[in-house]
C-alpha cells in the first residue's frame, strides 16, 4: 500500500498529508513532482492543499495541465482512488473529474477555523469508515471555497448521493452546504476541509484518520 502525493510549485499541505499518512497511520507515501508521469505501484493519489502555481489565473487552472495530472486522470478513470483536498478539490473541478467550481467566499474573508461536517458517505470509498449522518470536525482554511453549480446539477448530485460532506453551519456560501463531493463511481473525493489536519491528537483531533485510513480496508 503506497499513496502518491502530488507536489506542485506552491503546494503547502503535501508534507502535512505525508505526516498524517506515514507518521500517524503508518501508510507509506511517495511524492509526485508535477512533471513526473510514473504512478506505478501506487494504490491511491492525494492532491494536497496549497496554492498551486501561485493560484495564477484561477485556483487550479494551471495545475490542470501538469503532466502528472494527465496520469492521475487516467488512474481515476481506471477506478484508482483519488483524493483532492482544498486546492486539490479546486484542481479536480478544473480537470472536470468533479462538476462545478469553487469561488471566492461569500464574505470575502479567508476562513481558518474548525468546521463541523455531516457525512453522507454514499458509495464514496474514502468515507466508508464513517456512519451515515455522523458529525465530524475537520479544519477549513480557504479564501475560495464557495462551491457553485447549476441548481439542476446540484439536484442530480444530491439524488445520486454524491454530496458526501456538508457543512453544519455554512461558512462560505456554498450551494447546498457542499463541503465535499464524490464522483458517481465513488473513487474520487474532493473536499475543502482538511482531514490531514485532523489526524494527530496533539494538533486538532483525529476525525480525519478514518478517511485517510479507509483504503487500508
Amino acid at each position: 500500500m503506497t499513496v502518491g502525493i502530488v507536489v506542485f510549485p506552491g503546494s503547502n499541505c503535501d508534507r502535512d498529508v505525508r505526516w498524517a499518512l506515514e507518521g500517524c497511520l503508518g501508510i507509506p507515501t511517495r511524492f509526485l513532482w508535477h512533471e513526473v508521469r510514473d504512478l506505478s505501484g501506487l494504490d491511491a493519489v492525494v492532491i494536497p492543499g496549497g496554492f498551486s502555481y501561485g493560484d495564477y489565473l484561477r485556483c487550479g487552472a494551471i495545475a490542470r495541465f501538469a503532466p502528472v495530472l494527465e496520469e492521475v486522470r487516467q488512474f481515476a478513470e481506471r477506478g484508482g482512488a483519488v483524493l483532492g483536498i482544498c486546492n486539490g478539490f479546486q484542481v479536480l473541478t478544473e480537470m472536470g473529474l468533479l462538476p462545478g467550481a469553487l469561488t471566492r467566499n461569500e464574505k470575502l474573508h479567508f476562513i481558518c477555523e474548525p468546521a463541523e461536517l455531516v457525512v453522507q458517505r454514499g458509495a464514496c470509498r474514502w468515507l466508508q469508515g464513517y456512519a451515515d449522518g455522523e458529525n465530524v470536525t475537520f479544519p477549513i482554511a480557504h479564501g475560495e471555497g464557495r462551491y457553485q453549480c447549476e441548481p439542476h446539477q446540484l439536484r442530480a448530485l444530491e439524488e445520486g448521493g454524491q454530496v458526501v460532506l456538508r457543512y453544519r453551519r455554512n461558512p462560505n456560501g456554498s450551494v447546498g452546504d457542499v463541503a465535499g463531493l464524490s464522483n458517481a463511481q465513488g473513487n474520487v473525493l474532493g473536499l475543502m476541509p482538511h482531514p490531514e489536519r485532523a489526524c494527530d491528537s496533539q494538533t486538532g483531533g483525529i476525525d480525519g484518520r478514518r478517511l485517510l485510513a479507509s483504503l487500508l480496508g
Partner: peptide, 8 residues
C-alpha cells in the same frame, strides 16, 4: 479551455 472557466 484555459483563460476562463465557463462554469463560473
Amino acid at each position: 479551455r484555459l483563460l476562463a472557466n465557463p462554469v463560473i
